[in-house]
Write a protein that binds this DNA or RNA. Sequence first.
DNA 1: CCAACCTGCATCATCGATGGAGCAACATTG
DNA 2: CAATGTTGCTCCATCGATGATGCAGGTTGG
Lengths: 337, 337
Amino acid sequence: MNQQRPQKKTTIYDLAELAATSASAVSAVLNGNWKKRRISTQLAEKITRIAEEQGYAVNMQASLLRRDKSKIIGMIVPKYDNRYFGSIVETFEIMARERGLFPIITCTLRDPDLEVEAARTMLSYQVEWLISTGATNPDRITDICLAAGAHSLNLDLPGTKAPSVISDNFAGARELTRRTLINHQRKTGVMSPLLFIGGRGSDHNTAERIRGFRVAHQDLGVPIEEQHILACGYAPEKAAQALSAMAAREGSVPRGMFVNSTISLEGVMRWIKSSPHLNGAPPIIGCFDWDPFVALLGQDIEMARQDVPGMLTAAFDILEKGGDDTRNLIEIPPIFA
Amino acid sequence: MNQQRPQKKTTIYDLAELAATSASAVSAVLNGNWKKRRISTQLAEKITRIAEEQGYAVNMQASLLRRDKSKIIGMIVPKYDNRYFGSIVETFEIMARERGLFPIITCTLRDPDLEVEAARTMLSYQVEWLISTGATNPDRITDICLAAGAHSLNLDLPGTKAPSVISDNFAGARELTRRTLINHQRKTGVMSPLLFIGGRGSDHNTAERIRGFRVAHQDLGVPIEEQHILACGYAPEKAAQALSAMAAREGSVPRGMFVNSTISLEGVMRWIKSSPHLNGAPPIIGCFDWDPFVALLGQDIEMARQDVPGMLTAAFDILEKGGDDTRNLIEIPPIFA
DNA sequence: CCAACCTGCATCATCGATGGAGCAACATTG
DNA sequence: CAATGTTGCTCCATCGATGATGCAGGTTGG
């Protein structure tokens, strides 16, 4: 049949009439517990056949209304425009489906109001769990979830009111800094402090990465230049502006850099390309995040790839243990190539 | 209140009791048509206040069950691992919300069975519209949608049974080829045919792009080399393997290339880096797709950026006009920087 | 002073799926 | 042959929100 307009939806009552039986029997057969309800195999087969012929699909809205568990799991995510978040949502979907859950995802464009609105909307859809990824105010969302009878969990950025799974930012940054310092020495012959650029000074991850950055310098006995720590925000333009300002102020810019995300790296690379400040000498970069094209950008870029499967495995572990009591912080080490 | 465990959900009946009124009044007030139903402003304010105090959120399952329109719009998308699809889902969400719709998205990992399963699941959730992005078998999905009373629309790859919005692959490829041929001539002094690499020969977009590729060569009077059209699939490894095979077979590889997606480009660039076949001379590339880091990879890469906002505007136009009858194909020109 | 009308709500059936309870019809046991 | 058990269903209340209908109590017009 090649109908143009969508037809009305088939319900279990329609199927019941076609099979000359009751809606209850149809329901039992189609949701699989017909053995328990002592429906004959004969009738079960008949109903199954008719349902398939009619292209029947349960009305989840009705089904969920009746049941106690929705099996819906929500995730909010800031953006889809980089490999890290892309990988998070993709892995999340796969792992959720493997566990018989229905994932719904929404991006909040780093807008705190949208985060809250998105959380409320998801709660209206009866999510059982809500994972806040990189949320600006995760505790706010946890409060809303608790009030609405849902569990919550923080990913990427931690909160204090729900369990959190994040990268081991301190150890990762320390190792990345160490590697970059050594790369810099190998290339230039001198050991000199790196520039830290990107991220918000107010967020936990950036603060921890700066801490790792400091300690790595200390480990190698390299003094830090305080004015070379630029937590100027994540946007590419912010990074480019910060570099311009520094170049104007100091007349030059360090060749070795710790860049706090691929997003910021985009701005850094653009600025370097368009500016004479490095005199064509390629920068020596450590980037906290991974992108396949960045790997092709030059030999002198080291990346710390956040362990997305590891993080989500930890997240689903928590959620399978039902754990709200565990207000713990789980830190997953990033991966070096 | 800082409770640990989620509490039970508040319903309009709870609110009605707290406000000493009926559930019907609560419902009318909270969904905004209380004026029509002649509820006093006083009572409306009281109910609103109590609802806020209790952190009430409607149960969409119940609400949707009762209403005829779900306002849910679904999208299936192959992957989240590149800027094109990332931009599509992000723009889709924004535009859907602007129109008062609730977007749900699912990725299908380019798996035909998963596509069908995802479509069925979405239909269970009562989507009114389903947008199939880059689907391997869009007509199958349209059939399923029609049987279940939903509308469908194809994006990125066309189908024959529902309206389709895609890039103008022919014109885009023709222009990209023209530009790349000219770039090649400028750099090398000679006008010589390009290598076409990436994509599936069986998909409409690749076929159209190859057609544009041919016509552009013809336009400039450059003969094509048939064995230099390699629709080897999208995966990076496939592209790398195809190049290796060609190099082994012919002893060399053209310096000018038309690469049919950033995904394939990843493999191409990796191969070039690891292989001596170009003797360090940078390739001259036209890439049908856009990525910010690719722009930084070299001066000799021209990109055709698919006009995602334009495509989705066209898609939402169709869907606002309710149009199923319009089985038309809308082609949106890609953008050159 | 009564009909007609308006205001401000409450009652109740309904959406589709679900599962506890109940009920025939038949089989088995002592 | 009555008592008991088993098989194979059906009936009905229920989940929460919605809106048509109805119904008091007050107001207005003639």
